[in-house]
Structures are given as structure tokens and as C-alpha cells.
Design a protein around this nucleic acid. Structure first.
Lengths: 129, 129
DNA sequence: GGCATACCTGCAAGACTGCGCAGGTGTATA
DNA sequence: TATACACCTGCGCAGTCTTGCAGGTATGCC
């Protein structure tokens, strides 16, 4: 059960089988990188704030997001661009207003896991909206 | 229901109530930042790889982590330092070997959510270990 | 048609982060 | 006691990311 690549075959080891389990756990290299990219999307406080607002406050405009987060409208737009190209959010144009909504179901689960601790503890008006 | 801070009271808005909902969703400012920090921990592919290995391959040494991930042992140690001060992992010394294990239960859930798609699809040895 | 509004897009400055090297600490072995 | 090993810790460099400004595009209203 030697999953160790040939170029690392002579590297030192403590528990060889543990290393093999670890390699197995990593699966395809691309998978870890893809998830790291997804987490990177949530790693900036401002961007995460925007995303939480989009998640909980439904389809919402850039202007209102700026008001809610206290950010510059340009910064909000910039953050949304990243989220958009990553497929996290999608915008629907309504006249000259663009309202953004969550587009990635997995992100919904992720935010729910976090939101269970920082959003639901607040004065939730009526269940889960 | 005006949750808008006074210094933003004159900012433009599209749907005022949406902005209020968004502010409500954010809760305490510190909460969002705390979660952003948590996500930032998982945002680096190498660090995430280390964390996944620790998560799935149980208590494992720095040397074996380096072998599994293909990283320099110093880089692994560096990554572990960040994870350690953040409370994500903890190390148990056994002679001159230090074996690391997951220390944050919330991270376990987070990784399970991601792992359900990149780790469990591989040849899972025996259920969930 | 002309103007104001809502939003998007380059560009450059600044800050931040991760990596590798060199050196140090603690532990087991001869 | 002396040596080898596993790991940890400052330091400097390179790469990346975030931000703000200036300018552009698209839409609605007069």
C-alpha cells in the first residue's frame, strides 16, 4: 500500500502507514485546491459580510449592501465581482438596479453552519425567514 | 425599525427594509470577523492539505505530514504553528516526535461538509473511521 | 435628446502572507 | 557525555490581495 510518489520515496518517515492514510485522505489534488479557493472567498471580513447580507437579506442591491456593511460602493462592487466570477452569487437586473442572490447551494450550507452561531443567536424576527 | 447607524443615515438606499434586514443578519461585528478568520485558516491549499491529513489520518507527525503533502518540513511546521495558535490543532509529544490532532470540533463539521465531496468519494477503507 | 443615477472596470499604492534558510531547543541513543 | 534526530523559531524575499481613485457603460426620467 505504497501511495507515496516515487520522487518522495526516500523521504524520512515516522509511521509509514499514517502517511499513506494521509495521502489517501487528500484524494485528487485539485479537490483540495478547489475547496481552498472556496474558503478563500469567505476569508475576507468585508467580503464575508457582503455574502452574509446577500444570503440572509435575499435579493439586494449594491447600494443597500454598501449601506448595511458601511463599505464604499466601489468596494462592494469589487467584492461582488469576485463572488460572481466564482459562481457564489448571481445578479438580476431590474431597471438600473442589480439585485444579487446566492447562487451556490454548498455555500448556503457553509453559511448555515457559521450562521447558526452568529446570526440565529440575534433577535430572529420570525423563525428562519 | 431603523438599524442604520447615524453616520450612515444620509446614505442613499434602494430598499430600506432590505438594508435593515442585512444589518440584522450581520449581528455583532466581531462574529463575522471571527468566522472570516476561521475561513482564512482554510484558504491556503497547503495549509488545508495539512489540516485534512491531520483530520483523517489521526494523530500524525510533522515528518509524515511533509511526506504526505510533499511540502518542506519547515513549511509544515509553519502551517501547524498558525493552526495551533488558532486552536485548530493540538500536538502531543511522544519522545522526540510530536503528533498532531484536530482540536476544534467546529472545524470537524466544516471539513466533513467539504470532505463529503473530496474525501469520502475515494476508496473509504471502513465507513467514517 | 439631455441629465442623473446605479453599477462596472483598469490602474497603482499599500499591506499582508507564505516560503525557505539559518540557527536554536529538547529528546533518545551510543 | 557526545552525537543524531525531530521539531520549533526569527529573518528577509517574493508573490498576492485589497483598496481607492478615475473613468466608462447602461438605464430611467425630464
Amino acid at each position: 500500500m505504497h501511495l507515496v510518489p516515487l520522487d518522495r520515496a526516500d523521504w524520512p518517515t515516522i509511521d509509514g502507514h499514517r502517511a499513506c492514510e494521509a495521502i489517501e485522505a487528500l484524494g485528487e489534488p485539485g479537490d483540495v485546491e478547489a475547496w481552498a479557493a472556496r474558503f478563500a472567498l469567505l476569508s475576507d471580513p468585508h467580503r464575508l459580510a457582503v455574502l452574509v447580507c446577500v444570503w440572509r437579506a435575499g435579493p439586494i442591491s449594491v447600494t443597500d449592501l454598501a449601506l448595511a456593511t458601511g463599505m464604499n460602493a466601489t468596494a462592494v462592487s469589487q467584492a461582488l465581482r469576485l463572488l460572481r466570477v466564482a459562481g457564489a452569487v448571481a445578479g438580476d437586473r431590474d431597471g438600473r438596479v442589480v439585485r444579487y442572490r446566492l447562487a451556490d447551494p454548498t455555500l448556503d450550507q457553509l453559511l448555515a453552519l457559521a450562521g447558526g452561531q452568529f446570526a440565529a443567536q440575534g433577535p430572529t424576527p420570525s423563525s428562519e425567514r
